[in-house]
Design a protein around this nucleic acid. Structure first.
Length: 166
DNA sequence: ATTTCTGGCCTGA
DNA sequence: TCAGGCCAGAAAT
């Protein structure tokens, strides 16, 4: 069950850490990319009214997240690209407060699938909107960091900053 | 302590 | 099917 939301706009989010790129569908933020060599290219396009509003919220939220502060407001996030299982994982992730961490095994248990830790990891990796879906707050069961699709250095940085704020 | 299986579960091909 | 992934726990060094 993975329909593919069509992007109606792609906008950059400038931050001190580089340029993130946000993709919007007709129902909300559908994807967020970390800064890379590719995101330098100007992809800004004219946006329809609801999108510009979402983009304001997303921009502020991303900057807050980079400082380790909890997001005060977020745009609607379009998770329609995920499977049922992935959406359940993502929903659980959004319940983890800033400054706290959960383990892959713990999440699996809360989803009534105590043996699906690895599958949870897979869902995290498939997360289309990091920061908004805080997969960086999920660590390995015995202290390790686990991995991070956007680059492990981001995960470390985000966790450090959130820890400082608390 | 750390390395190496082995089990388990969800995807995408 | 089948391989492989942001895993865990047990067994073997």
């Amino acid at each position: 069950m993975k329909n593919k939301p069509a992007f109606v706009a792609t906008l950059k989010i400038r931050t001190v850490e580089g340029d993130f790129v946000a993709h919007y569908s007709s129902t909300g933020l559908a994807r967020l990319d970390f800064p890379t060599a590719k995101t330098k290219g100007a992809t800004t396009a004219p946006a329809a009214p609801p999108v510009t509003r979402w983009h304001e919220l997303a921009t502020r939220a991303v900057r807050q997240a980079l400082q380790g502060r909890p997001m005060t407001a977020t745009p609607p996030v379009d998770l329609s690209c995920g499977t049922a299982f992935q959406r359940r994982v993502w929903a659980a992730l959004r319940a983890i407060p800033a400054g706290k961490t959960e383990t892959y095994a713990g999440l699996a248990a809360s989803l009534k699938r105590p043996k699906a830790a690895r599958a949870v990891g897979g869902a995290c990796g498939a997360n289309p909107a990091p920061l908004f879906i805080p997969c960086h707050r999920v660590v390995a069961a015995h202290g390790g960091l686990g991995g991070f699709s956007g680059g492990l250095h981001w995960k470390r940085k985000l966790l450090e900053r959130e820890a400082e704020e608390n």
